[in-house]
Design a protein around this nucleic acid. Structure first.
Lengths: 339, 339
DNA sequence: ATGAAAGCGCTAACAA
DNA sequence: TTGTTAGCGCTTTCAT
């Protein structure tokens, strides 16, 4: 029995059917299937209902329930790039797990950064009576909020919007930068270079601030000549190799894992060994890369799963709306073998 | 005005409100907002309705509509690993785009391969009256279908199940292997090594079959000593380097991009240059890797986006249920610079 | 302890 | 051309 083309997918069994079989009213059925608190139901009736339910294979219609209760169990997630990056998947995953935990289900929509698609997506979610919307981007930056988002509860994930007043959940770039630098410091390095991205962003400024802060705490002077700008990719890291070597630093904190990957190449070409000749620290914890470079790259993780989860918690009002605006999620250091 | 904690997210405006304002009946409103085919509505009434709609900011309740029509616009996507791999995101993306195109929205659930979570997810989707379910895995293999899936239309994505009779959509591994090999052949190589995975799978057998088939078509003998087993990761490729070099092959088809990445390292350590000393072809087209290796890796793409899209098309009955069981989706070769 | 009945917001005959 | 009305499957007072 192939299952294509049926159309009628649901059991078709309604509460009324159950009531009939159990010989009770639908009200009674409703009470027992939902295990209502103040429900005074006779043991016998209750049993009969349960029997009827299993016998008939009854499955409540969640949509009807929503309609009558007026309150839905949907949470919308609109993302600008579900696929462009491995990261987006993590946000969905975290959001889905957390939503699930609270009896909600995730409605996802991808917009490819297209404003029209975005509005349409939001509309659609609104029409589906979502409890609220998680609006997420694939990299941490400031956005301008689509007007439509104001029509429902929404929380920004991995992005923020200045005057919007919308709650936001973002990675703690500064702490991440600090942790990365501290890891290098802890290994005894004193002359630590930093390959930073050339693109202005919270990541650029935050990680730099963290780097400086860690240096400071260690009693080291910040040496501007030790930070090198580079495009945030393999190419950038590769190209920066020369300057890094010249700088006579013994360790490098790379703006991200891709940069580190490029640096690995550059170092290898010069016959330099990691971590003996040069310790390197990444950022992002992009699994395909970090875990599989040789040697495996120590890095700092971007907490995408947590961002998604914290996002729904925030939406559901389960998280204390920490006074300060964008809520910071920690970027945990990941110890591997490049230090 | 912060948007947290409202609860009532939807406009609250119903069709009745619109009817009242427009001075017509709800039936009329229903007809004009849905632009019903056989709806003979006076221009005037129609105009008044539209005005009322915009004036009130009316937004139809999709759930109520579903309930009354008896047919929902949801498609469920249950995945065993949304996040474990960059690929899952692509499947979601493809499915979402295609669903959207036909007026459907995607309900996603992650199960982490946990059977209990899986059943729960399926139940939940059933309760939400999904039109059908896409059951997907993050790598192509045979599965045993959860019993619950039989209660609705379902199509298997990137996996298949022998006797289940369920429609499946999977990548065409053999064609992919053939294309990869042909690319190498086209560049003039005659002695082409193949690093295959050690894990039995459609990928293992399919890509090998494709490799042989391409060789054959080119009038070359299949030389068993030219296929090297390796773990399907960087490590495997790296380790295989020695044998590859010994084999005196001039080109290598790697089971996947990660293996190719390892091979790159091995080759570089030996001072061998790509593609001059050795041409290499990958498989998967894992962006972070393939596009950013040096030189960028030529490879064959796993059509995840297409798998998702084809999955919903199949579910909706829009795709000819090609006679043969698992429907094959092409793996297009991607030309870069390692050949 | 249980049932009758009035909705939830919308669609779809059927009347008018 | 437009309005009435009866549901869709469920929840929830309010009676009994």
């Amino acid at each position: 029995m192939t299952s294509t083309g049926h159309g009628r997918s649901t059991s078709g069994i309604t509460m009324r059917d159950v009531a009939k079989v159990a010989g009770v009213s639908v009200a009674t059925v409703s009470h027992v299937v939902n295990d209502k608190p103040g429900a005074r139901i006779g043991d016998d009736a209750r049993r009969r209902v349960h029997e009827a339910v299993t016998e008939l294979g009854y499955r409540p219609n969640a949509l009807a329930k929503t309609l009558s209760q007026g309150t839905s169990r949907f949470i919308g997630l609109v993302a600008d790039a579900i696929a462009t990056t491995p990261f987006a998947g993590q946000i969905i995953h975290g959001a889905q797990d957390e939503a699930w935990k609270h009896g909600y289900v995730l409605l996802v929509a991808n917009t490819d950064g297209n404003t029209a698609a975005e509005d349409e997506a939001i509309m659609m979610m609104l029409e589906h009576q979502v409890r609220g919307i998680l609006y997420s981007t694939w990299y941490h930056h400031e956005i301008t909020v689509p007007e439509a988002l104001h029509q429902t509860d929404t929380v920004l994930v991995d992005c923020f919007a200045g005057g919007s007043g919308l709650p936001a959940v973002v990675p703690d770039e500064e702490q991440g930068g600090r942790s990365a630098t501290e890891a290098l410091l802890a290994a005894g390095h004193r002359r630590i270079a930093f390959i930073n991205t050339t693109t202005p962003s919270p990541a650029q400024s935050g990680r730099l601030a963290g780097y400086r802060s860690a240096l400071e705490s260690a009693g080291l002077d910040f040496d501007e000549s030790l930070v090198f700008p580079a495009s945030p990719e393999q190419e950038g890291g590769y190209t920066a190799t020369a300057s890094i070597v010249d700088s006579r630093a013994t360790a490098v904190f790379c703006h991200n894992d891709r940069v580190a990957m490029g640096l690995y190449d550059g170092l290898r070409e010069r016959g330099l060994r990691i971590p003996d000749d040069m310790a390197v620290m990444g950022f992002d914890n992009q699994d395909v890369i970090a875990a599989h470079l040789r040697p495996p790259l120590s890095t700092v993780a971007l907490p995408h799963y947590e961002l998604g989860a914290a996002g729904v918690r925030r939406l559901l009002g389960l998280e204390t709306p920490s006074t300060t605006h964008p809520q910071l999620i920690a970027c945990p250091p990941i110890q591997r073998h490049s230090i």
